[in-house]
Design a protein around this nucleic acid. Structure first.
Length: 437
RNA sequence: GGGCUCGUAGUGAAGUGGUUAUCACGCCUCCCUGUCACGGAGGAGAUCGCCGGUUCAAUCCCGGUCGAGCCCGCCA
């Protein structure tokens, strides 16, 4: 027996083929029965007229594993233009319990029902509308990786088990490491900067862990961080790279997944070649004038403000993404660099996309003396601490001007597809309450 | 950490201080030869999250508890 994939059936027109897969749908019309069989390539429609064959499927639920042997007929009325006739059915793995959630119709993604969606995740993912999310996500990951390689980045993997929390900011998970305390990496920050001194350009696509008690539609305790870091650049180079990256990903996804995207009713985002920039101050002014809520002088953007400015940019700047520049230096991390000639501003840029912050990037302080000073003054850190020592070792060994960014893969996927929660774009999400499946 | 909201068949929802808790999808039986969210007839399936209180009577009102969701803070 030679297996033929569902999507290849038409090329075997008039011949007998064998398809292996899962029963995806049964429609009994009396003397005529239609079934759909799903394999990795998609669905094929099978027409069964022989009652003996139909009876083999009595009581068999969606998910039953089948072999179907039959003659390929070109048929305009069939989805995909081909179907199998004169078939012989073999049930390989019978499934007699009905699935707890539907597999052949779109699943409800209302916020209050997401818990059910995840409770039955192993089965619900077989729903092809769910599958589409993760095929698209896979393409997003590949497109990101391709773009990094095209731009001569080296792909790296840095440790996720660390001795102690040093970077500051987010809360970290602690764990017992053979009697010592260890933590899970909340970011590859120090490692990717160290590696700029080695490779000049590096990227990593890997999980990071954050023990923040944030229960929102945009937070998880484990997520995939897309980290890039480049030497010999300035903040404009960084923005240019990010513009190119986002455009490449979007183009690639729409090239490959037109049908899957239609399932989610999403349209291709409007993005100019160079994504426009607005300063923090400009955004506060615009938002305050438009809404009456006074945010002038605030050191960050409110979530509502992020949504609003994205709508503003879509309308007035013909872009569904926007860079936020000129962040106050008061709030910057010790390894960030202040702007030349404007020490009150950080050389930082955030990327907002369809109302959500998907990226934070910045130039890093590459002057060892200033860096040590900032470590002591801004983070209260000790340069001799092993958590900083090795990082500073690299920073003292010849570091050019460099900068980089972190991007949330789930946030990017969510916004490309038009979902409402990062967890919907995650196979098996982890949040404060959820540690399974 | 703070605030708000919600728990009713496998799933999604409606509903009421009082006789047998309603609908859709799914499931089972039967009918149906071009379905593709097939259609038609019938059927099974719910200790109304849990504990306590008020009441002649609670799924409904009150309190607690457990679970979930959303917003804020923070972040990607």
């Amino acid at each position: 027996m030679t297996r033929t994939l569902a999507s290849q059936a038409l090329s075997h027109k008039g011949k007998k083929i064998t398809v292996v897969g899962w029963l995806h749908k049964k429609r009994l019309l009396g003397g005529l029965t239609f079934i759909n069989v799903r394999d990795r390539s998609g669905l094929i429609q099978v027409v069964i007229k022989d009652n003996v064959e139909v009876e083999k499927l009595r009581g068999m639920q969606i998910g039953t594993v089948l072999t179907v042997e039959g003659l390929v007929k070109e048929e305009q009325r069939a989805p995909g233009g081909a179907e199998l006739h004169d078939v012989k059915v073999i049930v390989i793995v019978p499934v007699e319990d009905q699935p707890p959630i539907e597999i052949d119709k779109p699943l409800d993604h209302k916020a209050e029902n997401l818990d059910t969606l995840f409770e039955y995740r192993p089965i619900g993912l077989r729903n092809m509308q769910e599958t589409a999310i993760f095929k698209i996500r896979g393409t997003i990951t590949r497109a990101l990786r391709d773009y990094f390689y095209q731009n001569e980045f080296t792909e790296v993997h840095t440790p996720k088990l660390l001795a102690a929390a040093t970077e500051g900011g987010a809360e970290v998970f602690k764990l017992n490491y053979f009697g010592k305390e260890a933590t899970l990496a909340q970011s590859p920050q120090f490692y990717k900067q160290i590696l700029v001194g080695v490779f000049e350009r590096v990227f990593e696509i890997a999980p990071v862990y954050r023990a923040e008690p944030s229960a929102t539609t945009r937070h998880m305790t484990e997520y995939i961080s897309i980290d890039g870091e480049m030497g010999f650049i300035n903040i404009d180079d960084l923005k240019e790279f990010l513009s190119g990256l986002l455009n490449h990903v979007v183009d690639e996804v729409w090239k490959v997944h037109a049908d899957d995207l239609k399932k989610w009713n999403t349209i291709k985002p409007t993005l100019p070649k160079d994504i426009p920039s607005l300063s923090m101050e400009e955004i506060h002014d615009l938002y305050t004038k438009a809404t009456g809520a006074n945010t002038v002088g605030e050191k960050d953007l409110r979530p509502d403000e992020e949504k609003w400015i994205c709508e503003y940019a879509a309308k007035n700047l013909k872009s569904e993404a926007v860079f936020v520049t000129d962040w106050p230096a008061i709030d910057m991390k010790f390894y960030h660099k202040a702007q030349d000639g404007k020490p009150e501003l950080a050389d930082r840029v955030d990327l907002l996309f369809r109302g959500l912050e998907i990226t934070t990037g910045s130039m890093r302080e590459n002057n060892h003396t200033i860096l040590v000073k900032q470590l002591k003054e801004m983070a209260g850190g000790n340069p001799e601490d092993p958590g900083f020592k090795y990082f500073l070792m690299a920073m003292q060994a010849g570091m050019p001007a460099h900068g980089g960014f972190g991007m949330g893969l789930e946030r990017l996927t969510e916004k490309i597809i038009g979902l409402n929660n990062v967890k919907e774009a995650t196979l098996f999400p982890r949040d404060i309450n959820r540690l399974y499946p």
